[in-house]
Simulated scan of single mutants.
Amino acid sequence: MKKAENIIVGISIGDLNGIGSEVILKTFEDSRMLELCTPVIFANVKVLSFIKKTLALTAPLHGIDKLDQLVIGKINVLNVWREGVDLNFGTADENIGKYAIKSFVAATKALKENQVDVLVTAPINKYNIQSEEFKFPGHTDYLNQELEGNALMLMVQDNLRVGLLTDHIPVNEVAKHLTEKLIIQKIETVKKTLIQDFGINKPKIAVLALNPHAGDNGVIGKEDDEILRPTLKKMFEKGTLVFGPYAADGFFGSNQYEKYDAVIATYHDQGLIPFKTLSFGNGVNYTAGLNKIRTSPDHGTAYEIAGKGIADYNSFKEAVYTAIDIYNSRNEYLEISKNPLKTKEKQL
């Protein structure tokens, strides 16, 4: 297993007019970060140097043209493009979107080819990345195509973990997406990631109801009684510790979530509103269910403060920490799976 200090963290630059570059550079200004990992930022060293100077930041950058030129313990910047880029902080720009995707595609390729160990993505603007070459709503959908597995958005902050049955779809389409097959697949994905990525042997999972008051026995919708409840019961009887569906309105306010290793919401805002309220800007978006590790901060491009040097970098830093922790946990799990006798030796 690799030692932590040798973990290569690939970083896609995100929207250059947003706060992505700022939070990346601020994260690695602390030299102690380079004792944990070696970053490779997929961008252009001249562009990053300009941003660094503009924001009066001090992180020393090391430009490289190939990944085999990477230097352990340095902030490596792989030149994905050569030309200069016109920046206008706080502005949505279609041309800037093209560079965000160049960075992301190159970083994903390096991840697939094991040239980097984990991927941390800076925020993109979902509207200016669309093109004939890239027709995906965001990072996750592309990663789901390129990497093995079934992607699931899992928001993480310490022991609070919130997953989603459905993510970026309109609210009026959520109910028709809730099938037994989808529910089983998502819960099994969360169960597997809790075991191999977070070291929880017998995870307990709570599932939130779709309708207010879990449908009130069919008075406010039948999906919870007809789809969710019987599916959860079937999974529980087969050994998965899954509970619910719980009425979502009081679940977080009553601290009920603390009894479980993960909570699965039926749709995007049902899970992310309480998560972001509780995580205070330290949350991490982890793409569970894939054969590779990708994390990102829990915020967007934040155009309104871009270029002002005031962006909080804690969520991005936590995304790096989480990627490293999951990498080590997954490697340990794989090692134990290959040699279960080691586990017994530890217990004796």
Rank of each mutant, 00 (worst) to 15 (best):
S31T: 12
S31Q: 14
S31K: 15
R32E: 15
M33T: 12
M33C: 12
L34T: 01
E35I: 14
E35H: 13
E35D: 15
E35W: 12
L36G: 06
L36K: 13
C37T: 10
C37D: 00
C37S: 13
C37E: 01
C37V: 01
C37P: 00
T38P: 03
V40P: 05
I41W: 00
I41P: 00
F42P: 01
A43W: 01
A43K: 06
N44G: 10
V45A: 13
K46L: 12
V47W: 06
S49F: 00
S49V: 01
I51K: 04
T54R: 07
L55E: 04
L57R: 13
T58M: 03
A59D: 02
A59W: 01
L61R: 06
G63H: 02
I64T: 12
I64H: 04
D65G: 11
K66P: 02
K66Q: 14
L67A: 07
D68W: 03
D68R: 13
D68Y: 13
Q69V: 09
Q69W: 03
L70V: 11
V71E: 09
V71Q: 11
V71G: 05
V71W: 02
G73E: 08
N76F: 12
N76H: 12
V77N: 02
N79A: 12
V80H: 05
V80G: 06
V80E: 11
W81L: 06
E83L: 10
E83D: 15
G84H: 09
V85N: 11
V85I: 14
V85K: 12
D86K: 14
D86M: 10
D86A: 09
D86Q: 14
N88L: 08
N88S: 10
N88P: 01
F89R: 03
F89Y: 15
F89K: 02
G90K: 04
G90Y: 03
T91A: 02
T91M: 00
A92Q: 08
D93F: 01
E94P: 07
K98W: 01
Y99V: 07
A100P: 07
K102C: 09
K102P: 00
K102N: 11
V105Q: 14
A106I: 00
A106W: 02
K109H: 06
K109M: 08
A110L: 09
A110S: 12
A110H: 01
L111E: 05
L111Y: 01
L111M: 14
K112S: 15
K112C: 12
E113G: 06
N114A: 14
N114W: 04
V116S: 00
